[in-house]
Design a protein around this nucleic acid. Structure first.
Lengths: 158, 158
DNA sequence: GTTGAAAAGTGCTGCGA
DNA sequence: TCGCAGCACTTTTCAAC
């Protein structure tokens, strides 16, 4: 009796619980997760492999404290473009600015929204004046400097 | 001759190189890093321990694809407070909103700047109306919905 | 501070239920 | 499909340089 391989491309409650634990601490051993969720270590492994194949898991990255590395300024940038159609070209040039850690195409007042990390205010001014304002199509920018990061977390999967 | 323990609380070039590799892929084995930087595995371990003690490394977290988990909307929120002094109280209440993944106290037009992740536009509207607008001290908000996340990376350590 | 190797723990694979 | 057990690999520790 031919039977189509189920593939099981659904995310069930167990998957969510595994992700939930690993999103808090990616170094949690599989055996410990297994103990906590009362399944075997092999099961965790199978689920993780499935989630990776599905593209749910992009990878694991080390979280560093930018301030301890001499990056004291985090700022948000609202960027106005002359024309919305210049977006792709602008992004290409902005990608070459290493201080930009996040960049979005947004609705609302601004065309582009960016997050930027700099050593100090001088560094920020340099990047703004020399790297960003000179990009073709960028009309002007508004800067919001973060004085305090009060919340920083991942989405909760409940 | 009494001699103060050096502690070696400086970050040298080797530390930077180790961090650089692990920030791209936190699952890189120490042995492989050691080979690449031509030092022993034990050295990598000692350095990592030092960096953790110094607080440079906050931890490792799994990066997931929010869209694959049904979170399709990423938005930025500029929040106006009636008085800046209401910040601490507002943060306390906003911390209880799980959809908020980042929150900053900023200079510029807004008092608070937040990043929020929702399932869909309805979910976003619900969170805005029921959870955020009701917080005491919040005057009004401006929403910037991300239509495309073009850049997402860590600071480069060069 | 670094090295190299030994010891402990974890991740992976195949067999059985 | 899941769980168990053995093997390979990584992390950790430690004495010596």
């Amino acid at each position: 009796m031919p039977h189509k391989k189920p593939q099981n491309l659904e995310i069930d409650n167990l998957d969510i619980q595994i992700l939930s634990i690993l999103m808090k601490n990616a170094t949690t051993p599989y055996t410990e997760i297994a103990k906590e969720l009362i399944v075997s270590g092999g099961t965790i492994h199978v689920r993780m492999k499935k989630l990776e194949e599905m593209g749910v898991i992009k990878g694991a990255s080390l979280e560093v404290n930018p301030q301890k590395l001499g990056y004291d300024i985090t700022a948000f940038l609202g960027i106005f473009l002359e024309k919305g159609s210049q977006y792709n070209e602008a992004v290409k040039q902005l990608a070459a600015v290493p201080e930009i850690v996040e960049l979005h195409y947004t609705t609302g007042s601004y065309s582009i929204f960016a997050k930027i990390v700099c050593h100090d205010t001088n560094h920020l001014r340099e990047v703004l004046n020399e790297q960003i304002q000179s990009v073709k199509g960028i009309q002007r920018t508004e800067t919001f400097i973060s004085l305090e990061e009060s919340i920083r977390r991942q989405i909760s999967l409940d």
